[in-house]
Amino acid sequence: MIEVKLWAGLRPLADNQSVVRVEARTIREMLRKLEERYPGLAAPIRGQVAVAVDGVIYRDDWSRELPEGAEVMLMRRLAGG
């Protein structure tokens, strides 16, 4: 079971929860299950999120495996210069 922390802007789309628990082996599976449970998250998940796994920020590699007990956070996808 993975605990996923949501940034404040996402919480209203997920029954105002700041932490959501899902059973998932990869980032892709985690995002899919979040979207199934909270359809309102579908729009931000398409292109607005990055996922921090144990402090490393992933923006594209949704195949990345989630280690048991990993700290997982959804973050805003960032701009760069």
Binding site: A52, D54, G55, V56, I57, M75
Partner: peptide, 9 residues
């Protein structure tokens, strides 16, 4: 724990 959320490696 970073000020923006995740714990640093």
């Amino acid at each position: 724990r970073s000020s923006y959320g995740p714990v640093y490696g």
